[in-house]
Design a protein around this nucleic acid. Structure first.
Lengths: 196, 196
DNA sequence: GCTTTTACCATGCACTCGCATGAGAAAAAT
DNA sequence: ATTTTTCTCATGCGAGTGCATGGTAAAAGC
């Protein structure tokens, strides 16, 4: 076996190029040629690792999911109380700095694209489920720790919180809210769930 | 002057065709040819009313804004109390039946597209502002009528409510929530704002 | 040294894209 | 009846699209 190549690394590299193209020029200008140029490799090389354009997009979408998972995991490692985890996780998902804006712009593009592509919708649903159950878990833990009021409907609160986060994204990206305003909105909402 | 043609009607017709293409095949398969075919007219005719593709998309986006405005106005006409108006308006914006799903699929596509197009972002921001101030107004009226608790921050509540609505859209379109669950979420949230 | 396997590339194909152009049909104005 | 204005269309252009193909370089196995 010649030229030992880390396939996983190559796919990551390609996915990164797809992300940059989506971010800079939008989903509709993603093409094999454009991505290959962005990745600094020939079109044939891209085709070697990715058989079709749809698969390439799916790969890029899955990488976004992984990225989000990693960021959430990092939050868990650094925070102490369930309520801190909850608050910081939501903030982590919002476009409050350049890197998170980058991530969210791409997410928005895939959100629209997933409405038309069933494959992408499936990946999207998986992400929803895992994130929602994580948030619900934290809410429950915060209740147990006496940080949140006990009579909350955990599932509904998680859904509302996450919907809020998702809904504020585009308005923020488009310049309707400043990062400070977004954080203030989140804290205002969390305040009413607080025990005491 | 020959062949008196209602330009406004033609533009509406073209915008409708753009909507159908976006809905059925996604934003990235919107092309002058595709839209012309969908509109049942020649490509040249479309070009006569719309000088560029960007302008065509802008036209279609503005029409969505008008459509939303009309639906909200209809809600106001049929409801009695401010809280009813508030609740029904939000429900009106959610993909709870086929027509509203249709509208929201297109809205999602434009949301992603507006992140890359500044013209579209401007239209989007205008829609945000007017809808947010409308919701805030209703919340204030509901407070005055004793339907909502008095100490609410009107602006923040409007922002949170609208963000929730926007955020729940994609999850619903992608099949993560049923219409009943969405309505239940909204009512659960509104319940905690209720006076008494 | 030779074969086999893996990685990569250049090119071709049929098709679509946005947009420009020029010709022509049709109705009001004269 | 002729001119003028408004509308519509067919067509061409250069560029870009996804994908398939055949060839090539290089390293591992024998």
């Amino acid at each position: 076996m010649p030229k030992i190549v880390d396939h996983e690394a190559r796919r990551r590299h390609i996915a990164g190029a797809v992300h940059r193209v989506i971010h800079d020029k939008g989903m509709e200008s993603v093409s094999l040629r454009e991505v290959a140029a962005e990745a600094g490799m020939s079109m044939g090389a891209v085709q070697y690792y990715v058989t079709t354009k749809d698969q390439m997009l799916l790969l890029a979408l899955e990488r976004i999911g992984i990225w989000i998972g990693e960021r959430v995991a990092a939050v868990v490692a650094h925070q102490t109380t369930p309520l801190d985890v909850l608050r910081t996780t939501v903030l982590e998902l919002l476009p409050l700095d350049e890197e998170r804006s980058y991530l969210n712009r791409i997410g928005q593009a895939f959100q629209a694209s997933s409405v038309v592509s069933e494959n992408q919708a499936a990946v999207m649903r998986m992400g929803y489920s895992s994130l929602l159950s994580f948030l619900a878990e934290q809410i429950r833990a915060a209740q147990a720790a006496g940080q949140l009021v006990a009579h909350l409907d955990v599932g509904k609160e998680a859904s509302i919180l996450y919907a809020f986060a998702q809904g504020i994204v585009n308005a923020t990206l488009v310049g309707h809210y400043t990062p400070e305003e977004v954080a203030a909105l989140l804290d205002y909402h969390l305040a009413r769930l607080r025990a005491g």
